[in-house]
Design a protein around this nucleic acid. Structure first.
Lengths: 140, 140
DNA sequence: TATTGTTATACTCTATAACTATA
DNA sequence: TATAGTTATAGAGTATAACAATA
């Protein structure tokens, strides 16, 4: 059966945001899976590279991950030698990209930029820019 | 510590879609929680009302829920007497809104329209319409 | 007293596989 | 052989509470 059904949600921004988000995120998650990293861990690597010495709690605030959930994520990245950490003081660490992490990041960025390109080429450059601009206005 | 960190993802459409989606969905989920229903179940109620007699598999195709995950959702709605179902043939059911479901749907729609209004009033009507239009172009 | 990080735990959402019965 | 629905199970992702060490 392929009959379409009526969807009263289809003109709501919230619903369309969710669908559009999924249509971009899910294939990206799949291509990241091929290089053996989750989208969350990939995000952490990118933020650590851009902010050498960042702490777990700073990362958590930026991407809305609670400290109790951050711990296993960071331990996993440490165990895979993608990042390193140094004591700042008695209670916090500074996080840094390790050698293997730099290699992984190149692959991560390739996946992300391919994902972005895949979507954006059905839009004019002006449309794409405005989409990003409107989205930022929604959440900022 | 409140120092902002650098985020190289902030101009990517995928990242902004996810952030924007969350900023709308999370408060909506909270207001739906107050009336004791999840966003997924609320979506199902709305689709069942708009398509009386719809089957579980049709619903699943529309909102990308696998049949194995649909079963407990439908059983829950049946158990709470929000929907009813009738045998179509030996293997499928038609789903219908029950009396309690109609009452629940009024509350659900109030939550959804409030959520939509909360967000849209920082945009001009033209901007909002274009946002929805661009989002539909992303996923359709 | 507030902050950083850890541990343990639970709940939701989603994914897979094996199954039944029906078309 | 394909479809509709069920069951069981496992994995993410996220939530809370309690805790130790430190500022």
């Amino acid at each position: 059966m392929n009959s379409e059904i009526i969807n009263p949600l289809q003109d709501l921004a919230g619903y369309n945001l969710r669908r559009a988000s999924n249509i971009i995120i899910l294939p990206l998650e799949e291509s990241l899976r091929d290089i053996n990293i989750s989208i969350v861990s990939a995000t952490l690597l990118i933020l650590i590279e851009a902010n050498p010495g960042v702490t777990q709690s700073q990362l958590g605030r930026e991407v809305a991950i609670k400290s109790s959930n951050m711990t296993p994520l960071v331990l996993d990245l440490l165990g895979r030698e993608l990042i390193e950490r140094e004591r700042n003081d008695g209670r916090s660490y500074g996080l840094f990209i390790a050698g293997k992490g730099k290699t992984k990041l190149k692959k991560v960025w390739r996946c992300i930029l391919e994902s972005e390109a895949r979507q954006s080429n059905q839009f004019s450059r002006a449309e794409w820019k405005q989409l990003v601009c409107l989205l930022q206005k929604v959440w900022k």
